[in-house]
Write a protein that binds this DNA or RNA. Structure first.
Lengths: 168, 168
DNA sequence: ACAATACGTCAGCCTTGTTGACATTCCAAG
DNA sequence: CTTGGAATGTCAACAAGGCTGACGTATTGT
C-alpha cells in the first residue's frame, strides 16, 4: 500500500519518487546479472560466449528460421552474427540448409549436439527462474511480466509477441 | 488464476511449464535491452559506453566510495574498471582523492560535469521505468520487484540491500 | 536484362572483459 | 626499526564481440 496511489487499471497517475525508480533500476541490474550468470559459467568452459547462447536459444525456439530473421531478433549486424554462426556450424551444433523455395535463404536448425547444449543452458536459466517464481508466487509473477512487457519498446514487444505462440 | 496454483505466501508448489518459464526468460531479454537502450544512445554520442554509465551511477549513489568497493559491486577486474575510471577522471567527470587515513585508497566523487551527465543518463532510464510502472500499476510493480529480488544470488542481493538505504 | 534481396566475407575499428607484471602504501612480527 | 606480506591501484597486452564499410555471389522478381 505504501508503494503509491492508483487503481488496478494502472491508469491513474502514480507518485513515483526518484528513489523508488532507482531501486527498480538497480533491481534490474543485479537480477539480470544473476540471470545470465549460470549459462555464462557453462559457456566459458567451452570457449563460447553469451552471443552463442542467444543464437542457440532462438534457433531452438524457431527451427528453420533464416539468417535475416535471426538478425532482426538479435539486433546485431550480420558480420557479428556470422562470426558466431560460423563457429557453431563448424563445431557441428547448428546446421544451415539452403532454402527450397528461395535458394538464397539459409534455414537454421540445431543438430543433436546443438540441442543438447541448448538444453543444458536453458535448464540452468530455467532453474533460476523457476526458483524465483516459486519464491515470489503467482501474483508477483503476473506483475513481473506486466512491468517487463511495458518496459519494451514497440519493436521489441512485437518480436516478443510473435515468439509467444510457438505455432503462430 | 490461469498462471498457476499456489497461495499468496508463495510457499506452495507451483506447476511451472517450460513454456511459462521460457516466456519469462524472453521477457527479461527484450526488456533489459530496452532498459539499456536509452542511456546507450546518449553514451555513444560521446565516445562512452555502458561501463562508464555503471561507474557514474554507483559513484553518484555512494559518493566517496573506494575503487575496491566499486569493484565488488560491478563485479569486474580492477584493470577493467581502471580503464573506465581513467577516462572519466581525465575528462573531468570524476574526481579521485587520496584517502586520508589510508593513503592507498582512492575516494571517488562526481564533479559538477559528472553529476550533469549522470543525471542525464538516469533521467532517460527513469523515464522509461516510470512509464512502465504507470502502465502496469502498483500491484504489478510490487510483484516485479519481488521476482527480481528472488532471482538474485546471495552476493547480489546483499549488495542490492546495502544500496537500499542511502544513509544506511 | 537488370535491380533488388539474402547471404557471406575481408579489413579494421571500439568497448570492455581478461591475465600478468609492477609500484605504492600500510601494518605487524621480529 | 626494519622487513616482509597484504592491500590498493596502475600499466601492458590480448580476446570476445559489438560496429562500419566495401565487395562478391547467387537468386529472385520486375
Amino acid at each position: 500500500m505504501a508503494e503509491g496511489q492508483g487503481t488496478e487499471s494502472g491508469q491513474a497517475l502514480l507518485f513515483l519518487t526518484d528513489e523508488q525508480l532507482r531501486k527498480g533500476i538497480e533491481a534490474m541490474f543485479f537480477a539480470y546479472r544473476a540471470f545470465t550468470a549460470d549459462p555464462d559459467r557453462i559457456l566459458t568452459d567451452m570457449a563460447y560466449g553469451r552471443a552463442h547462447h542467444r543464437a542457440l536459444h532462438f534457433i531452438n525456439r524457431s527451427p528453420g528460421t533464416t539468417v535475416t530473421n535471426l538478425l532482426a531478433i538479435l539486433n546485431v549486424t550480420k558480420q557479428s552474427l556470422n562470426r558466431v554462426l560460423r563457429t557453431l556450424i563448424e563445431d557441428g551444433l547448428v546446421e544451415s540448409r539452403v532454402g527450397t523455395t528461395d535458394k538464397r535463404e539459409r534455414h537454421l536448425y540445431l543438430t543433436e549436439a546443438g540441442a543438447v547444449l541448448e538444453r543444458q543452458l536453458s535448464d540452468a536459466q530455467r532453474d533460476r527462474m523457476r526458483a524465483a517464481y516459486r519464491t515470489a508466487g503467482p501474483a508477483a509473477v503476473a506483475g513481473f511480466r506486466q512491468v517487463l512487457e511495458a518496459m519494451m519498446d514497440d519493436e521489441a514487444r512485437r518480436q516478443y509477441d510473435e515468439l509467444k505462440e510457438p505455432k503462430g
